[in-house]
Design a protein around this nucleic acid. Structure first.
Length: 254
DNA sequence: ATGTCAGCCCTAGGCTGA
């Protein structure tokens, strides 16, 4: 079983790139972030033609998430239960016995901003909800755009980024807190090329210079850990003419 | 090194967010 996450930065703009990527990689389950679509505009027919069922939760202009799967998803949840949140950031479902949570974590803008406070509150609520989800569903995958670079080796210039958004000790502590629930970063189960990033700023020729961050992650539960046989970042779509700023990340479970 | 992109807004460039 292959599962992937991709921040597409507008599903309207990226739909053809997505269906091309699905045709080549044939993942069983995909979560998308930043669809930036209201629910009435979700391209369910085009994705069905590509062989995928979909669940979605969108809003206009910002945010928006989706869960694509070849097999149907059960017990679908939108956003974090009990958290009053205007922003569409989470979609979860159970597919072939695996609980899949797709999330678009808040960006946080800057450590001294209101948006950072929202990010902290959202992360705290996510952790408590995921704790319960793990108790109910031992086979669980939490994946998406975390907007957190967990370690300095996930940052192209850790000195320049020290204390900056995505790299603060508070954000990294939340990432470790999720791991502490019994989740593991699938990417780090394997030897990986140095300077592996999942996001490159559109500005400053960042992709050409490979100046990026690894902020898109797939965390798997202990019950799935022994089944993980690969985890890769696919840079190919970032080389498209009009790419998303993020690359997809994909994990293989035997 | 401040060299981008997407969506929004009473259509056209300036804004917000990333």
């Amino acid at each position: 079983m292959r599962l992937a996450t991709w921040n597409v930065n507008s599903l309207t703009v990226r739909l053809a790139q997505l269906t091309d990527w699905l045709a080549v990689n044939r993942p069983d389950i995909v979560v998308l972030q930043e669809t930036k679509l209201t629910d009435d505009k979700f391209p369910a027919e085009a994705l069905a033609a590509a062989g995928y069922l979909a669940q979605w939760y969108g809003q206009r202009t910002y945010n928006g998430v989706a869960l694509l799967s070849k097999a149907s998803a059960q017990d679908v949840v939108r956003n974090i239960p009990g958290l009053a949140d205007e922003q569409a950031r989470v979609i979860a479902g159970t597919v072939e016995g695996v609980r899949v949570i797709g999330a678009y974590f808040p960006n946080g803008q800057a450590p001294d901003s209101d948006k950072f406070q929202y990010k902290m509150q959202w992360l705290a609520a996510l952790r408590e909800w995921v704790r319960g989800e793990l108790a109910r569903h031992p086979k669980l995958v939490l994946m998406g755009d975390y907007n957190i670079a967990p370690e300095d080796r996930d940052v192209y210039d850790p000195v320049a980024w020290a204390g900056q958004i995505h790299c603060t000790p508070e954000e990294r502590a939340h990432f470790q807190g999720l791991c502490g629930l019994g989740l593991v970063d699938a990417f780090r189960l394997f030897e990986q090329p140095p300077k592996s990033w999942s996001w490159w700023d559109y500005r400053n020729l960042a992709f050409r210079k490979n100046q990026g961050l690894r902020i898109d992650h797939i965390l798997v539960s202990e019950a799935l850990r022994s089944r993980v046989s690969a985890c890769v970042i696919d840079k190919a779509p970032r080389k498209n003419e009009r790419p998303s700023d993020h690359a997809p990340v994909m994990v293989t479970l035997d």
